[in-house]
Simulated assay, not measured.
Amino acid sequence: MLISESALRTFTQNVFLAMGCSDEHAGLAADVLIQADLRGIDSHGVARLVGYVRLWEKKRINPNPNITIVHQTPTTATVDGDAGLGLVVAPFAMRLAIEKAEKYGSGWVSVRNSNHFGIAGYHSLMAVEKNMIGFAMTNASPLVAPTFSNERLLGTNPICYAFPAGNYPPVVVDMATSAAANGKLEIAQRSGKQVPEGWIQDANGDITTDPHALKKGGSLLPLGGNKEHGSHKGFGLSATVDILSAVLSGANYGPWVPPFVAFLEPPNDPVGLGIGHFVGAMRVDGFRPLDEFKANMDNWIARFKSASTVDPNQKVIIPGEPELEAEADRKKNGIPIVDAVWNDLKGLAVKFDSPLTP
């Protein structure tokens, strides 16, 4: 199933409006999800829309949040999202970080009392649009076991760095700190496929390729898969995201992070408020002239793109290139929607009496 960007954007925005979001917030939330689908990150696009609706129905998402700055210095701040959509709260925080960077060279904002914020790349690229280096990360529902454990204590905890370039597109390193994002398991479940070894373990801690293992008490593995392949490094990266996003802001961390799925209740002994994010922006000209940096970035990109490869038919892929290629294709030909997601969207169309056509 292919659907045009404009049709999918209008429908998604209408769903957020039906939830009670303002025009501004509905448009912004829809944009974050549509950008994920355009960039080929299907796990974080409109496939998540039904999840947001279910959390809203459970009154765990506030459609009209009073987002406030609860603490700040000239270059730092902590924001309370008032249980709003992370799709709205995180851009608020990044705009604040950018404002601080414009005045003082860098800006860093931690966020508490928020929800799932979509793709980290969306927020980091806001800084790139201002010729700054952008950072974005968030903690998430505990699905990942630390190295040597079979207990879910961390989320997939994505982290993103985005760097402006000159003649080339920006370099965007956007990744989960787990071996795979949970959304990739969901994609495998919908398609009836197994997942690669090293992504997930069962309840006993044994490696499995069953994409449904999480529902049976299993857990995702940190980036690296196991200790022999560097999972302690993935664990360390995930811990860093959790601490900066939540311990620093006053959000829930570790096993206390509330689940994204509505049928699971948040822990009854929270250690903070909602989930947490951490975003930052740095002015390049705080370090050297912008044009010199961009020229060197172009040179860096060109050199890596020309690297010799084991397979002459396979070139080195610069971080962010696959997403740009997907965006060009999907803007032209439409966004692919798998049957399971299409059925979810049709259900929302009926629920909110909002038309949805391919």
Score class of each variant (00 low, 15 high):
191 S>P: 02
70 V>H: 03
339 D>C: 00
144 V>K: 09
145 A>L: 14
84 G>K: 09
248 L>N: 00
75 T>Q: 10
39 R>P: 01
200 I>S: 06
77 A>T: 03
86 G>P: 05
237 L>E: 13
161 Y>Q: 01
326 A>Q: 11
161 Y>A: 09
108 W>M: 15
87 L>S: 08
258 P>E: 12
21 C>I: 11
178 S>G: 03
302 A>V: 06
49 L>D: 00
335 I>W: 10
82 D>E: 00
171 V>I: 12
162 A>H: 11
222 P>M: 03
260 F>W: 14
75 T>A: 10
1 M>W: 11
266 P>G: 14
236 G>N: 10
141 S>E: 07
84 G>S: 08
50 V>Q: 10
337 I>C: 05
264 L>N: 15
79 V>F: 12
134 G>L: 04
149 S>T: 08
28 L>R: 03
7 A>H: 08
190 R>N: 13
58 K>E: 06
264 L>G: 01
290 L>H: 00
334 G>K: 01
319 P>R: 13
281 A>M: 02
211 P>D: 13
231 S>M: 06
211 P>E: 12
89 V>P: 04
138 T>R: 02
30 A>H: 06
269 D>S: 11
99 E>S: 11
177 T>R: 03
307 A>D: 04
287 F>V: 10
207 I>Y: 12
109 V>W: 12
358 P>A: 15
303 R>G: 05
109 V>G: 04
72 Q>R: 03
172 V>Y: 04
186 E>S: 12
212 H>S: 04
350 V>W: 06
72 Q>M: 05
340 A>M: 04
127 A>M: 05
180 A>H: 05
171 V>F: 04
187 I>T: 09
284 V>N: 01
5 E>Q: 12
